[in-house]
Structure formats: structure tokens, C-alpha cells
Amino acid sequence: MPTLDLRELHNTEFPVPDEMQGNIAITSLSRIYNWSRRSSMWPLLFGLACCAIEMIATAAARYDLSRFGMEVMRASPRQSDLMIVSGTVTKKMVVPIVRLYNQMPEPKYVLAMGACASGGGPFKEGYNVVSGIDMYLPVDVYVPGCPPTPQALLHGLIALQKKIDGQSLANFDDVPWYGVGPSEPTPIPILGPDIIDPRQMDLIRQQAELAAAGKPYGVRDLPPTIKPEPAAAPKVPAKTAAPAAEPDDPEKAARLAKREAALARKRTAQGEQPTETPAPAAEPAAGDQAAPKKFDKEAMLAKIRERKAQKES
């Protein structure tokens, strides 16, 4: 259990006298709010499938989830902040899951653990399997793996903590629960002939009309096929070309610029110096532009020495 060090929270803009360091911190509301919240995330005690076993192993002695203030698994959704969707979401089960989510008090987060919860996983083709919980619930962190090792789950949880660190009380778009009034519950799916998402009602109605008129159900035009170019050497798959973002793509550049601006706004809203704020970790793309902060060993050592000296004095 790490001891509480108020200096973590401290906003360096406001000087605190030396002798009070460690006793007083002046900081922004967002920051202290986020800090307290992310240090005591209580997950919902709730296992779906194989991944749940690894989740339990994560909570057990060897990996020890309690190091992050998350060991208090609550069996009641009303006492929990985080839903770890650990396993295959079936059509039959998604109904209770959405109910549980609606019962959780805000602020609430969802972590999709494993391939199944993220996108259907190995059982995606199944007639009773939902291709990922994000069809119904907003997911904050995806942890890949089948099952993710406990280390991976821990990493996901730390990513979630970082994401929380980046949230701001001033930004309603980002975090709906800071807005005014209660937020809307997620509509509960209906188990009819197949699962029916009430949000798709209009679409279903159109389809029903089509069917009544004796026409076939609507079929979307296929998106253009991504075929490897016949001229190119067949052994080079499209993979190598895909991930790197073309800098000369104007659309992408515009998007990046927009994101930068948004990030900057967020930082100022939090009253922090931009250099000190790590980019919100939940967005993997964000890492691409912000040059990764290098680990500066010298500075770290100096800091530690300083602290030691302070303690001794």
C-alpha cells in the first residue's frame, strides 16, 4: 500500500511553504475528484465466462488488485463504479447486463475484458453471441486477449485510471454525469425471435414494411473490396501499408489538428501545465502524436534524493 503523498496532487502554480509540504496541497477540483475516484474503483463482482477466472486470479494474492484500490468487489451494482465485462456476452445474458449497468450509480465505467467482450471473440459467429458489449454499453477500456493475462488486465485498469485522470468537471461531452440532471438509462434489449435493440426500432419497422410488401429485407451495398492489387507482389499483404497514417492525407491532418486543439482546451480547463499532463491513455491514437515522454533517470534520482533530504530534515 503506497502511502499518501499529497505532493502528487499538488499544483505547482501555487507555492506551498516548505514546512507544509506533505500536509497541504492546492489543486484543482477536477484533479482531486478524479484522484479520489480512481484510487478506489470498486468493480462489480460479476463473471461471465473464462475471462472471469483470470479476473479472479488478478484479484488473488499473486497479482493483487488491491494495490490499485480495486479489490473491493461489490456484488451489488449499486455499490460499484466499474463493470468488468469478463467474458462472452450472449444474447440471453445481455439483458441482465444492461439492467445491471443501469443500476450502477454514476460515475460508472465499463472495461471490456477479452476478445469476446470486445468484439465477439472466438464465438462471434454464434447465433446466441453478441459481438462485443459495445453494441449496447459505452466501453472505456478494451483489454485484448483470450483470456487476457492478469498483467494485461492490470494494464487495462491502469489505463482506465489514466483516463479518469484526464477527465474534467468542465467537459460535459466527455463525461455525461457531470451534466445537469440524471442521464438516460440504456434501453433494455428485448428477446423476441432474435434479440431486438429498441434503439433500432425504426429500422426494424422499415424492414417489417418491406417484408409485408413481399420485398426482401434490405441489403446494404458492399463497401469496396479491399483486394491486394494484382500488380503488386502478391506476398506483400495490405497490412504493412495500413497502419502508418499518411501525413499528406488532408482529412487525417485536419482530424489530428482538431484533436490537438481539443486536448489543449482540456488541459487549460484542468488548470494544468500541458507539459505535465500525460495524454489520456484510453485513446491509443493519441500516443502517436504526443512524443512519448522519455524516462529521465537523472531527474528521477534527483527528485528521490530531494525527498529523502526533506524527510530527514
Partner: peptide, 19 residues
């Protein structure tokens, strides 16, 4: 080939529900 058109991409239902 490795190029994929999943059935759910083709059907205008998000979840490709058949009634």
C-alpha cells in the same frame, strides 16, 4: 484471399437480425 465481408456488414441491421 483474406479480404473480408462479414454478413453483418452487408445487412442493414447492425446485428443482422433475421425475423
Amino acid at each position: 484471399g483474406g479480404w473480408v465481408h462479414r454478413a453483418e456488414e452487408r445487412n442493414i441491421y447492425g446485428k443482422n437480425v433475421k425475423y
